[in-house]
Simulated scan of single mutants.
Amino acid sequence: MKALTFSRYGKSPDIKITDVPRPTLKPDELLVEIYAAGLNPIDNMILKGTFKPILKFKLPATIGSDLSGIVTEVGRHVTRFKPGDAIFASIFDLDTGSIADFAVVPEHAAALKPENLDFVQAASIPMVGLTSWQSIVERANLQPGQRLFIPAGSGGIGTFAIQLARHLGIKVATTTSTGNLKWVKDLGAEKVIDYRKEEFDELLKKL
């Protein structure tokens, strides 16, 4: 199968489309035909070697963490999915990549794709969604009525985090540029600060 791989870390990671063996399944994994893949800033940081001491890839390695696609095969221990299911997932830190014809996905890392999202939209969600949930719910344990400042509200994580926080009843303040003021307000931010014109640290003290 075809995959987008890198062969070394640094400024010249030797990125290219190569033929790689089709992955084989473990009992708790899904084989997914990739319909769309998402790239995040951390994927570029991996290529530069920033996470080399933490993430152990066997080079050459396939690039990408987020994906959406159709399940084509399931391991014998899988119970939540079947061939033909449309799913989305993040396979970050699993020594495999998403920019390929096929990828293996652990059952615990996959979720059914919402019917109202196409495959490209679904592939854009996993890492920003997980980051937002882990930050707001698991780490900060914010409760309805509490206040949350989200910098860069029009960015990938910001747009998701604003909506999640508002869904949970949390009051949101955020920063963005002039052209995105309406956009982040429509997402649910109660206080929107134009960082090009206003000093957000002073304004936040008054909230």
Rank of each mutant, 00 (worst) to 15 (best):
Y195T: 14
T178Y: 03
R196K: 15
I193F: 12
Y195V: 10
G169M: 14
R166A: 08
A173M: 13
T175C: 08
K185E: 11
L187C: 00
A165P: 07
V184T: 03
L168N: 12
G188M: 07
R166S: 09
L187T: 05
K191N: 04
I193G: 06
L168C: 07
V184Y: 01
K191M: 15
K171Y: 11
R196Y: 08
L181S: 03
G179I: 07
G179R: 14
G188I: 07
G188F: 09
A189T: 03
H167V: 06
I170G: 13
V192C: 05
I170N: 11
W183G: 00
T176N: 01
T178Q: 13
R166K: 15
K191P: 00
L181K: 09
E190S: 11
A189S: 07
S177V: 13
T175A: 13
T178N: 04
N180K: 07
T174Q: 07
A165S: 14
A189D: 02
H167D: 09
D186R: 06
R166T: 13
K185W: 02
R196C: 04
D194T: 11
I193T: 12
V172N: 04
T178R: 10
N180E: 02
K171I: 15
H167W: 06
G188K: 05
R166P: 06
I193S: 12
K171D: 10
K182D: 05
L181F: 04
L181N: 03
Y195M: 10
I193D: 08
G188V: 10
K185A: 00
D186H: 05
Y195F: 15
K191S: 04
I193P: 07
R166G: 08
Y195H: 14
D194K: 08
V192S: 05
G179M: 10
V192Q: 03
L168S: 04
K171F: 08
A165L: 05
R166I: 09
G188L: 04
R196S: 15
L181R: 02
Y195S: 06
G169K: 13
R166F: 04
G169E: 09
L187Y: 02
V172E: 05
A165H: 07
V192L: 02
G169A: 14
A189M: 05
R196P: 00
A173N: 08
A165Q: 10
A173P: 01
K182I: 02
N180W: 00
V192A: 03
V192D: 01
L187A: 02
I193Q: 11
N180G: 03
L168M: 15
A173V: 12
T178D: 13
V184M: 03
L187S: 01
K191R: 12
S177H: 12
K185S: 03
D186Y: 01
K182A: 06
A189F: 06
T176F: 01
A165T: 05
K171S: 11
V172H: 05
E190H: 06
